[in-house]
């Protein structure tokens, strides 16, 4: 039961949240302009990083905001959070 520091509500139990997985996956701006392989990369391929990575969380049973958590996938240690659209934050 992780303790997720919601940037809007403060630390809350993981059971209030839904994890959206890897952050920073950008939808091609012009889908028709990309190849099937590039589209597949967007759709399915993941970095699945072992170590510190950025991931999306949704405070489903709280403020219902999506935000980004920087978390180590080995130790579960949370390094920090970002609000959506904050400086430099890719979704």
């Amino acid at each position: 039961m992780l303790l997720i520091p919601c940037p809007w509500c403060g630390p809350r139990a993981e059971s209030e949240f839904a994890c959206g997985g890897e952050a920073g996956i950008v939808r091609p701006g012009a889908p028709d302009a990309v190849s099937d392989a590039e589209w597949a990369d967007y759709l399915f391929m993941r970095t699945n990083h072992r170590g510190l990575h950025r991931e999306q969380w949704w405070h489903a049973h709280g403020c219902r905001r999506w935000f980004i958590v920087r978390r180590d996938t080995v130790t579960c240690r949370i390094d920090g959070v970002e609000k959506m659209g904050s400086a430099g934050a890719a979704p």
Partner: peptide, 13 residues
Amino acid sequence: DQYAGYGQRGSFH
């Protein structure tokens, strides 16, 4: 568990 994890441990809930 809903989150990615390489730690061979999950959440109690």
